[in-house]
């Protein structure tokens, strides 16, 4: 294990009775990146986060956060980790500022941290209001302020966009980008909202049925499945030619055929083959799969392949 990773797990596993919630997870989250941790509901995202935060004891494997080993039940006093769970953990009978003050006192932080955190999330004007009168978006922002209070070098967020409207989601993205930029921090973000992750994450990990299916840069994943859409005059003949030549046809509709390719130069090769066989190629459109395509491709029951 090395210190260049903000999060590093080796063979991390957790079972509940006979059910395996996390199975041999080898997470590698480089420092300074926003890492999107994707998976369908029940895939093991929340269990992974609870293991990282020391709320659950691993059945097997080990964890390092910011280079420090995490031992269950023993607080890692040196590493600075902030966390925001799916629903912010707040005291509704206290004001926004008092909620932050509770954590500030527990961590023994300077008093200025409270005002700075409130300002970061734009809640300075509402700091003296009781939290039970806050809207969901305000609570989410206060939760983020709570997570960022100690100016952590690693921020772990579990489904932070849950319940937010599109404006709130955009605001959250802006806050996270600003936090990473200003604090030079690492963000580990779990979500099942693919578009949200696609817009913010540098690297992603996809977990499905307790196992990590892919981990790497977003562009690497997108390169993992690229398509070429071809419009031709003879669809059936084209399908036969391409199949004979060993190309994988992913879908076809009237006048259009989609072929899986690995690079843009494949488009030139396909075009040449078809023209030589007398097919009139009317259009060629190289397409990058969306994260949603890739996610569904990786997590669909028929496809058990792993790219990790």
């Amino acid at each position: 294990m090395t210190d260049s990773y903000a999060i590093e797990t080796r063979g991390l596993s957790r079972t509940f009775g006979r059910q395996t919630a996390v199975d041999g997870l080898n997470l590698l989250v480089p420092r300074g990146c926003i890492y999107g941790f994707l998976g369908p509901n029940g895939a093991g995202k929340t269990t992974t986060i609870r293991l990282l935060l020391g709320l659950l004891r691993p059945t097997n494997g080990n964890i390092r956060l910011m280079g420090e080993p995490i031992i269950y039940g023993q607080p890692n006093l040196r590493s600075s980790v902030g966390a925001l769970a799916e629903t912010p953990t707040l005291y509704p009978h206290l004001t926004g500022a008092e909620n932050l003050e509770v954590t500030r006192r527990m961590l023994g932080l300077p008093k200025t941290h409270v005002a700075e955190a409130l300002e970061m999330v734009g809640l300075t004007a509402d700091a003296r209001r009781l939290v039970h009168s806050y809207s969901l978006g305000m609570r989410q922002r206060l939760g983020l302020a709570l997570a960022c209070l100690a100016k952590p070098s690693l921020l772990i967020l579990d489904e932070p966009g849950n319940g937010l409207d599109p404006a709130g989601t955009r605001e959250l993205r802006t806050l996270l980008r600003r936090f990473v930029h200003e604090q030079d921090a690492t963000v580990f973000l779990s979500s099942h909202v693919l578009s949200e992750v696609e817009q913010i994450a540098d690297r992603i990990g996809i977990i499905h049925r307790a196992r990590l299916l892919f981990q790497g840069r977003l562009d690497e994943l997108k390169g993992y499945e690229r398509k070429l859409r071809i419009r031709v005059d003879q669809c059936e003949k084209t399908r036969e030619i391409l199949k004979t030549e060993g190309w994988r046809i992913s879908e076809s509709s009237e006048g259009w055929i989609s072929v899986r390719i690995s690079s843009d130069t494949d488009a030139v090769v396909v075009n040449k083959i078809l023209v030589e066989k007398g097919i009139q190629v009317l259009a060629l459109q190289p397409q990058q799969a969306t994260l949603e395509d890739l996610f569904i491709h990786l997590t669909s029951p028929s496809d058990k392949g792993t790219a990790a």
Binding site: N76, V81, A85, T87, T89, Y91
Partner: peptide, 19 residues
């Protein structure tokens, strides 16, 4: 119940402080 109502244990127990 102050802690259980908002699932505050998740936050408190993940802080770097002796349980």
């Amino acid at each position: 119940s102050i802690e259980f109502q908002g699932d505050n244990w998740r936050h408190i127990l993940s802080l770097p402080i002796e349980r």
